[in-house]
Amino acid sequence: MPLDSTTIVRQVLQLQADAVARWHVEPIDNPYTGLLSVVCQQHQFNFQLWHEEDIARRTDVTDAQIAQVKRNIDGFNQRRNDWIERIDETLLEMLDARGVAAAPDAPLNTETPGSAIDRLSIMSLRVFHMEEELARPDATEEHLSKVEPKRQRCVLQRADLSNSLGVLLDDIFAGRKQLRVYRQMKMYNDPSLNPELYRSQRRAG
């Protein structure tokens, strides 16, 4: 894939929108290669996380089922963050392959491209589900009047964020900004860093 920010942003947006629609009626798949394959995998974890979060709000299931859903949410969220890092790593590999290096004093951005792509992934899910709500046969006029302004705001936010991502990628590809991968280091998922986990292990031993 060329270092063309316009093409990358367009393809990412198309992938996310297409995948969300497809995965609601077909099994989750990943027919992409290269950077887009990594973006699709990250998007998948947001898709799965979204629907587990919906289940977690139900009141007609058992406590044991909710406990399992919460564990699923934790796992999907960890993998979602892992693959944000993988997007940034892939971009760094692309830069290295093309000999692009930022000056040591080049500034950093407040978020990485991977983080912006993650936010676009979530926004694609919001837009899809807002449109799903608008298409409900039992939707009242009151419901529609609440949902449509929210959908419009989501569409605007997605456009603004995708434009900002394009500018960031332009700067990174031109060496005007640095790209670094920052590890999430979520302590609660590490048995050696979460006191609730290592204390329970000691008590069990």
Rank of each mutant, 00 (worst) to 15 (best):
M1Y: 04
P2E: 09
P2L: 07
P2N: 13
S5T: 08
S5H: 12
T7R: 12
I8T: 08
I8W: 01
V9A: 03
V12Y: 01
L15C: 03
A17T: 13
A19H: 02
R22N: 08
R22D: 11
R22S: 09
H24K: 12
I28L: 08
I28P: 08
I28K: 05
D29A: 14
N30G: 03
P31F: 07
Y32C: 00
Y32I: 00
T33V: 04
G34L: 03
L36N: 03
S37N: 02
S37A: 15
V39R: 01
Q42G: 07
H43C: 01
F47S: 02
Q48C: 06
L49C: 01
W50Y: 15
W50S: 03
D54K: 12
D54A: 08
I55K: 11
I55N: 09
A56V: 09
D60A: 11
T62V: 05
Q65R: 10
Q65D: 09
I66P: 04
Q68N: 10
Q68G: 05
V69M: 07
I73Y: 02
N77E: 14
N77W: 05
N77S: 13
Q78Y: 08
R80K: 11
R80N: 01
D82T: 05
W83R: 00
E85W: 02
I87L: 01
E89L: 10
E89V: 05
L91T: 02
L91S: 04
E93K: 03
M94V: 01
L95M: 06
L95V: 00
L95G: 01
D96A: 15
D96H: 14
A97H: 02
G99M: 11
V100F: 05
V100C: 10
P104T: 05
A106P: 04
A106Q: 04
T110M: 09
T110K: 15
P113F: 00
I117Q: 01
D118L: 03
D118S: 13
S121P: 04
S121Y: 01
I122H: 05
M123C: 03
M123A: 09
V127T: 07
V127F: 06
H129M: 12
M130Y: 15
E131R: 15
E131D: 15
E131Y: 07
E132F: 09
E133I: 04
L134W: 05
L134Q: 10
L134Y: 09
A135D: 10
A135F: 06
R136C: 09
R136G: 05
R136W: 07
P137E: 08
P137F: 08
P137T: 09
E142L: 13
L144N: 10
P149D: 05
P149C: 13
R151M: 14
Q152V: 11
C154G: 15
L156V: 12
Q157P: 04
Q157K: 13
S162N: 14
N163D: 14
S164Q: 14
L165S: 00
L165E: 02
V167A: 14
L179I: 07
R180S: 07
R180T: 15
V181G: 03
V181I: 13
Y182T: 06
Q184A: 13
Q184T: 07
Y188M: 10
S192D: 14
L193H: 06
N194I: 06
Q201L: 11
Q201P: 00
R202Q: 14
R203N: 12
R203L: 10
G205S: 13
